[in-house]
Write a protein that binds this DNA or RNA. Structure first.
Lengths: 340, 340
DNA sequence: CTGAAAGCGCTTACAG
DNA sequence: CTGAAAGCGCTTACAG
């Protein structure tokens, strides 16, 4: 593996000049720069990351703390992060904390002790407020995606608007008897979770329009959890005319239960979800769209910007603002006017 | 941030001794070691990764090349990798190549130029054979999960056995008219994909038992792709008595189509999948179980072993063996004797 | 068992 | 525009 020294020698310049020519710093004649770059290319030179890190103090790496990786939301955010980081020539260091209470916190501590990253994004539900505060003191840009939080910069769907859109869509179709099936929050990191906010939005809409008040049901965050509860609810005579599900996963569980019970959707039952997972489109599920990959890309863009600022300005005030994404209703074939 | 030098001074020893005491190397009195460790703890010392890398040439990082991250299989493997790497105090560097032909290959080249990892695991379908050969020459342990390949060490489900088990389960129940719905391979990296192997196993079983030969159908690797095709197939009069799906995702698509058409499962139609995704359990899908997270853990264990060997032995022959996992039939409620 | 010193391969003031 | 030199913070032969 050729070193900078080899390149410099072959190009007939000093290491300093070679370094500058390669890094794109100015103060190098274009003739020299071109020659150095050509020579470096010929030799197949790659700067040692470790040496560069040691010299500059920058890792060119962004860390991602996530509770898991094999669910649509987390996977999509991670995908966006990986894509954006790559385009900035940064690496992605993954910390899969796993479920909390299952060693996740211990892993977090290990990260705190070892972590060497220029910037950090935490995908929510991986951490509680106290942890976030500690992260925020890390003197690197830290952002959270999935929840608004006062501790760090944050990015997420406007859950209130999403919940309202879902409920109002059914209200506008003429429904007056709706049930909200919320998906359970496994970890309760902050005062409210996205699930809570969607639920409250539903309740607000219900109150505004004087709908029949049915107590919200909460189910585990899995299609099967929702499915089991839906079988029970839909099996009764006085079932609601529409279901507002907290997530598409829940909605699909309801959808399936309806089919199994021979209840036609949307003629006899309307179902709406939130998220717009790929499967939703396939089954004609009406839902409220969000794009987590986009959130991932945006959070990286913000980190890059913050890093840039820190280099130029003296000591910038940490940005703890929140970006809220506007949800988008996608009407498909699982919703319609109530049977009458 | 305290440096080694600070620890050494505070403990009244040299940097060399402090380094040895902290790293666990022997040749340090236990008194000295304890004191150094105590002092390091008090000061909150963390060795600089960059400095350590530069000095040792080891990165304590393992790279993961994956085509995507938001699907069950990849996510599960990644989860296992992250977990195992963590327990070995190694970091995980993620390269999400995305779909091939969509810039994935370009990212791969960038990885090759930049990558600084001690070991590498590629989750299949991210790379073609030629790429794997290049990786194998990287002089670091490289392993592939998801396909057996001659280029590197590899780990994956015994797809042949899985395909046989699925088909034979239905044959044993008395079925003689089965259809296999294979899931399409997006990239065709090697001579055969897992989808091909499952399909061939199905055909072999069909031939052995003299089943009616129906041409295998191939559908996109999504629940919705399978769903659309299943609606068409199951809608015909002469539909098969059982469906052997290449994956659970496909099986669930079939399952849903059956429900929509009012075909009772398993009374009128048996459906079996392969994978045992969490949703399968929820819907009572009979399937053939595999555990990708386990594969991920094993691959990391192998890498750690290989790294260890390289340090002790002179120049070990690269291990290109293959580990094949035995599938396990899980009978639930989606399969039964054919209607008669 | 312990220490002084060289070295890992870059970057970046500082001079010129 | 270019170069000599110091420095980033560790580890590891080499002596003792």
């Amino acid at each position: 593996m050729p070193r900078l020294d080899d390149v410099a020698r072959a190009a007939g310049v000093s290491k300093a000049t070679a370094s500058r020519a390669l890094s794109g710093a100015d103060g190098v004649s274009s003739t020299t720069r071109e020659k150095v770059q050509r020579v470096a290319g010929e030799l197949g030179f790659r700067a040692s990351g470790a040496a560069r890190r040691l010299a500059t103090g920058r890792t060119r790496t962004i860390g991602v703390l996530t509770p898991s990786v094999d669910r649509w939301y987390f996977g999509s955010v991670l995908h966006g992060i990986a894509h954006a980081a790559d385009s900035h020539e940064h690496d992605v260091l993954l910390y899969d904390l796993g479920a909390f209470g299952h060693g996740g916190h211990e892993k977090f501590e290990r990260f705190m002790r070892r972590g060497e990253v220029d910037g950090l994004v935490t995908i929510t539900w991986s951490l509680v407020g106290g942890d976030l505060s500690r992260l925020a003191e890390l003197s690197i840009p830290v952002a959270t995606v999935g929840e608004p939080t006062p501790h760090t910069r944050s990015f997420c769907l406007d859950d209130d608007a999403a919940g309202r859109q879902a409920a109002e869509h059914l209200v506008n179709l003429g429904h007056t008897d709706l049930l909200h099936i919320a998906s359970e929050t496994e970890v309760q990191p902050f005062d409210s979770s996205s699930s809570d906010r969607r639920k409250r939005a539903f309740e607000a809409v219900s109150a505004e329009h004087g709908l029949r008040m049915r107590p919200v049901r909460t189910v585990p965050t899995t299609m099967e959890g929702a499915h089991a509860v839906a079988l029970e609810i839909l099996g009764r005579d006085d079932r609601p005319s529409g279901i507002v599900a907290g997530t598409d996963e829940v909605a699909l569980g309801v959808f399936l239960a309806a089919h199994q019970l021979g209840i036609r959707v949307p003629e006899q039952l309307s179902v709406i979800g939130i998220d717009d997972v790929p499967t939703a489109g396939a089954f004609g599920l009406t839902t409220v769209h969000q794009d987590p990959a986009r959130h991932g890309e945006d959070v990286v863009a913000w980190i890059m910007g913050a890093l840039h600022e820190r280099r130029s300005e003296r000591s910038p005030e940490p940005d703890r603002s929140h970006t809220s994404y506007v949800p988008e209703l996608v009407v498909r074939s699982s919703t319609g006017p109530p049977a009458r």
